[in-house]
């Protein structure tokens, strides 16, 4: 059966919106009355859901490993309805999933799930982020300028997430490089979830092409937050100095190894 209303002079918008409405509707009556072949509409509906699920499973691998397939399918379906793709690239669809999960029953039942989704999304974005390497010549500024006049531009793929759940360990429990790391991370995550929850900062960074995740110590987290908010090196050091474990020299060596810094700039 063909769509009966798409006459020669039918405005394009009507026929196209009619087809979209039929595909996106969950109401069997709406589909049956759309005028389009129901079997055909159902093919598009299945394709849409399969594409959405596949896209989310790629962008949110941890979340999809944590959930049973029927739950993840349900979430994909509901998320599709609440935030339809609008960019023509499935890889760019999902920025709102973490917030969406926090409103769902499963998000309520597993309160760390939304933060896991937020971490997955940042890792996914870093995977496709701009390639940046440290401008080594800018190191000279550390010798030439006072810390009050130095600011740090971070690599665009460096992101900090605030959470009270062990999402770094949960991430590596699923994506660790080997069984040993995965088991150790799983143990850490289980212990942390069984203990009183404490605020922590998790960092996403990309040394080369593969993004990595690290849970930061308090001093380092404070230091990086200060720098990333545009404060001078002097202010950031002051903010971190309350923590005896923080050493700028150690941080600098590690930051260069991890490709955290894009450049030092004079303010």
């Amino acid at each position: 059966m063909n769509a009966p209303y798409a006459n020669n002079d039918e405005p394009i918008e009507n026929e196209q919106q009619g087809l979209l409405a039929a595909i996106w509707s969950d109401d069997a009556k709406v589909i049956a009355q759309s005028g389009f072949d129901v079997d055909g509409i159902n093919v598009y509906r299945r394709n849409l859901l399969a594409n959405a699920e596949r896209a989310l499973s790629i962008s949110f691998p941890t979340v999809f490993e944590l959930l049973d397939s029927d739950v993840s399918q349900h979430i994909a379906h509901q998320f599709l309805k609440s935030s339809p793709p609008n960019q023509g690239d499935w890889a760019q669809w999902g920025a709102a999933l973490a917030g969406f999960i926090s409103t769902t029953e499963v998000g309520y039942e597993y309160p760390y799930l939304a933060d896991c989704a937020a971490l997955d999304w940042q890792v996914h974005c870093a995977l496709h982020g701009i390639d940046q390497t440290f401008e080594q010549s800018s190191l000279q500024l550390l010798g030439d300028c006072q810390p009050e006049h130095i600011i740090v531009k971070f690599n665009a793929n460096v992101k900090l997430l605030e959470t009270k759940y062990p999402i770094g360990d949960i991430f590596y429990a699923h994506h660790g490089v080997d069984e040993r790391q995965r088991k150790a991370s799983l143990n850490n995550a289980q212990q942390a979830l069984a203990s009183p929850l404490a605020a922590q900062t998790v960092m996403v960074y990309r040394p080369e092409f593969q993004p990595k995740v690290a849970t930061l110590m308090t001093g380092e987290a404070e230091f990086m937050r200060s720098l990333m908010s545009g404060q001078s090196l002097a202010n950031a050091l002051n903010n971190a100095n309350g923590n005896n474990h923080f050493s700028f020299e150690h941080w600098l060596v590690k930051a260069i190894e991890r490709n955290l810094i894009y450049t030092f700039k004079e303010n």
Binding site: E15, Q16, L20, I23, L48, Q87, G88, W90
Partner: peptide
């Protein structure tokens, strides 16, 4: 919104 598929036209 994007349809997520290649939809036919009249």
């Amino acid at each position: 919104m994007h349809s997520g598929d290649l939809l036919p036209i009249a």
